[in-house]
């Protein structure tokens, strides 16, 4: 595994306004892997990405992208492709015009590859950007990113609003992109099912803070979902219940695996999905203690 991380954020603080801020955000992705950035709407995913890309200034901390400090030279953007949940091209542009417009800015722009990707993705070069469906617009942005030979793809909520077929196609495209071991992907989403298939690392963000970060399998192993009757799962049992959901039928909550042993026999304890972890952390009013895992177990 190469030593230089694809990116790293260390102790990043960034006040956004309306009282929201990123607080002491820190996580990193080794080169060659996919990281899922998970959090509810408003958790700070987009702000984190904007800071990472140098689109927003930070108050303190340190950001490293592809081995270089951010903010730094704009030449760094030659190596980064950004895919959002909406296009940032003029709606009236035809897809061929998108290429003519962007090509002068990229040193390694490959026009033949762009046209080939449009063909592969079923995009008509004569189509206008405004007439593309969400799935097609996402493919256009991916085609642009791959045509300038980006080494890091950053996706911000790319699958929200996509149908399952388009989401499956995206997973396939990312898989192909990762065939080159120098390529990495940051994937921000609140649809965690996508990460079940492609995520190597996961960072959970809640209320502007990183709650947990590390290899996906370790994060899945670190929590358990517990279900029991209202009397069986109370705040008095000596185990921290993260994001407890109470109903007349019972209580469901997340607990740390090392504490789950205290509950054995009394309640139902199960391995969680990423979605369950994200939901319960999103529900928790108090921030769970930060856990940062080493990357050793990822590979």
């Amino acid at each position: 595994m190469p030593e230089t991380p694809a990116f790293a954020l260390r102790g990043v603080n960034c006040a956004v306004g309306n009282g929201f801020a990123l607080r002491d955000v820190g996580f990193e992705l080794p080169t060659g892997y996919v990281m899922g950035l998970i959090g509810a709407n408003g958790a700070g995913k987009t702000t984190t990405i904007r800071c990472l890309l140098g689109m927003r200034g930070i108050d303190s901390g340190e950001i490293e992208l592809l081995g270089r400090r951010v903010p730094g030279s704009v030449s760094l953007r030659q190596d980064v492709g950004v895919v959002l949940d909406h296009t940032y091209f003029v709606g009236e542009w035809r897809l061929a015009e998108v290429e003519r417009t962007l090509r002068p800015f990229y040193d390694r722009w490959d026009g033949a590859r762009y046209r080939q990707l449009l063909d592969e993705f079923g995009l008509d070069p004569k189509a206008r950007v405004k007439n593309l469906s969400r799935g097609m617009a996402m493919k256009l942005m991916i085609a642009v990113a791959l045509s300038h030979r980006a080494r890091l793809l950053v996706f911000d909520e790319p699958t929200s609003g996509l149908d399952p077929v388009a989401r499956a196609e995206l997973v396939g495209i990312i898989g192909d992109f990762l065939l080159d071991e120098g390529h990495s992907v940051l994937f921000s989403t609140h649809i965690t099912a996508d990460l079940d298939r492609i995520g190597d690392f996961v960072t959970l963000i809640h209320d502007g803070r990183v709650v947990d970060t590390g290899p996906k399998d370790e994060i899945l192993d670190a929590y358990r979902v517990v279900r029991g009757g209202p009397d069986e799962l109370t705040d008095l049992i000596g185990v921290e219940l993260i994001g407890a959901r109470r109903s007349p039928a019972g209580v469901e909550a997340l607990v740390r695996t090392d504490e789950a042993g205290l509950l054995d026999g009394r309640v139902l304890v199960e391995a969680p999905t990423l979605e369950e972890i994200a939901i319960h952390i999103g529900l928790s009013s108090a921030r769970p203690a930060l856990r940062t895992r080493t990357r050793g177990a990822a590979a």
Binding site: L53, L76, R77, V80, T87, Y88, L102, F105
Partner: peptide, 16 residues
């Protein structure tokens, strides 16, 4: 047009 098409993001993403 920059407001309408979110070109500010494009300018922030392009190597310029």
């Amino acid at each position: 047009i920059a407001d309408k098409a979110d070109l500010t993001t494009l300018y922030a993403v392009l190597p310029v």
